[in-house]
Design a binder for these strands. Structure first.
Lengths: 229, 229
DNA sequence: CCGCAGCATTCTGTATGCAGAAGTTTGTAT
DNA sequence: ATACAAACTTCTGCATACAGAATGCTGCGG
């Protein structure tokens, strides 16, 4: 297991990545995959043995996992896998929406012709995946499109926050993660047009509605709605 | 302080805070106060001795400081105080602006009469401090007003992000931290009126302009402008 | 049968020890 | 004098050790 961890880490960074980084990644994987369930008490010694390292790198990984919102660290009690609540999920969606809206506004102000071209390529990819019914490709394309818009926005602080928030949103909704489909990609097309025109106001407005609808949709699915539109 | 912001922590028993928390706070204080200058190499052993603890809590505090953006952690080299750039400062101001704007919108939708009453009290305090020329009181009142609005917004995720971003903004501009004065508090009054009416749209708009002006003002001061209006 | 006090166990939080990497200095040869 | 290399000096990263808190268990008394 130790070999697996170090091997997984080596291709990441030029410098030898610390063990704690590998542990951090491994634990997130375990949480996302459901091997560690919300509320579960994480005993350092057990994790250490399971991963073939000492408690030290495990502790340091847990620290980061806390500040990133994956686990709760209760003093003198240890780490517990974070239990997402409906309320918190709703709050996350709201925050993500305003951040993405800002991202779209900035992108509209910055986008160069080649950026727009790339956006259309990603749009094509998404529409293609939609037509093929390839859900995994669809999700990938959606993520790529949004994060490319963020990169056009050229605001590292914003990008970091969106990344953090989005990852948690994804986790909360993992069990019901169904892409919205056609409507969403029509909205993407409108968004790209606005960005191409440099119309920040309109780009922001479209993104705001887009993300709010995604939130509503996910809530609906959570409440029992089926299928994808 | 961070705990106080999360709703979950409110009804939790006060437990002895781990040393690493104290170290974390102490290091931020040292960074903000300028005792530790940007780019400086932080040697764990030195910090440990200076703070009277072992290297262990120091290490764990540095981990968190990294994910919160206060230090950079280079593998096998250790921690370096993060060097803020003009660009990053501008990005922070932008992000803070959209977050505060969202906060104002939410507050307008949630505010109860007693909340509005409290807001007017804080407003009085600020105006009083302004008249008395008491800068410290003015800053305190300003912070209190903004954070009370955030608490009315009742979004823990948002509150956490605003807290993080604001603290860094304060750090970047510490050397030139001069409050804007009369104009800012006129804007506050307008803002409270909008919140009282439950006019989210208007409250958001006022806050957006308010925070953008604060950013502009600070930039102007940074560029050499004097005094407070 | 239930409640509670005291003890045992378990786990965290902190300290210390140790091996290896990174940076620095010194010495040597050209 | 300069370039290069090897030893040296740090410092990090990980492992191990130990003290104290929190939880659970046991046994006694009601």
């Amino acid at each position: 297991m130790r070999e697996a961890l170090t091997a997984a880490a080596t291709h990441r960074v030029a410098r030898p990545a610390p063990l704690r980084q590998a542990v951090y990644d491994a634990l997130i994987e375990l949480i996302i995959s459901g091997s560690l369930t919300p509320g579960q008490h994480l005993v350092e010694a057990e994790l250490a043995e399971h991963l073939g390292v000492s408690r030290q790198p495990v502790r340091e990984a847990l620290q980061r996992l806390q500040t990133d919102g994956w686990v709760d660290l209760r003093p003198a009690q240890g780490a517990f896998v974070h239990s997402p609540t409906e309320e918190e999920a709703a709050q996350l969606l709201g925050v993500r929406s305003v951040l993405e809206t800002y991202s779209a506004r900035l992108a509209a102000g910055n986008a160069k012709p080649e950026d727009v071209e790339r956006l259309w390529e990603l749009q094509e990819e998404g529409v293609g995946a939609l037509a093929a019914g390839d859900v995994e490709r669809l999700v990938t394309a959606n993520t790529a499109l949004h994060s490319f818009i963020t990169s056009i926005a050229a605001n590292a602080v914003l990008a970091e926050l969106i990344s953090q928030v989005s990852r948690k949103v994804r986790w909360y909704y993992t069990p019901i993660a169904k892409p919205r489909g056609k409507d969403a990609w029509n909205e993407h097309a409108q968004l790209i047009k606005a960005i191409a025109k440099g119309d920040a106001e309109r780009a922001g407005e479209i993104m705001r509605k887009h993300t709010e609808r995604t939130g509503d949709y996910r809530k609906a699915v959570a409440a029992g709605a089926t299928a994808l539109s």
